[in-house]
Amino acid sequence: MTQTNKNTTANKDDWLSICQLDDILPNMGCCALVNTADEQAKQIAIFRIISPTGEEQLFAVDNYCPFSHANIISRGIVGDLNNKIVVASPLYKQHFELSSGQCLEDESVFLNSYAVRLNGSTVELALSPLAKQQQKKA
């Protein structure tokens, strides 16, 4: 934890800086706390995947597991299944594709996924899908 940013408030296209890349261990996840446009705290699981060829990739999805109703996605084991990069939820082991958030066992279930990037050595996150949802509701 090199940074705390409790008061970060996100606008649609804002890139929020979350942490340093080194704070996330290779091929593992961590959980970030961000505040949404309507001041609600939101938990997002960020994964750092290093392919066997050494390529770095970052993914961000909801940390809330819709099957167990607990905030645990970031603690799942990552891997690949049928050429998709996935995380397995640690309680009941459903798999979610990291890029889309789609659950592989149940088509109707998915996690929101978010844009995430590396800016220098800083991991940054954008909350666009969240914002979209808020708009839909309104």
Partner: peptide, 15 residues
């Protein structure tokens, strides 16, 4: 270090 719930906050999981 890895036992904190959030990478960027000392807050607790409010769920």
């Amino acid at each position: 270090k890895r036992f904190t719930h959030f990478v960027n906050s000392k807050a607790q999981d409010d769920n």
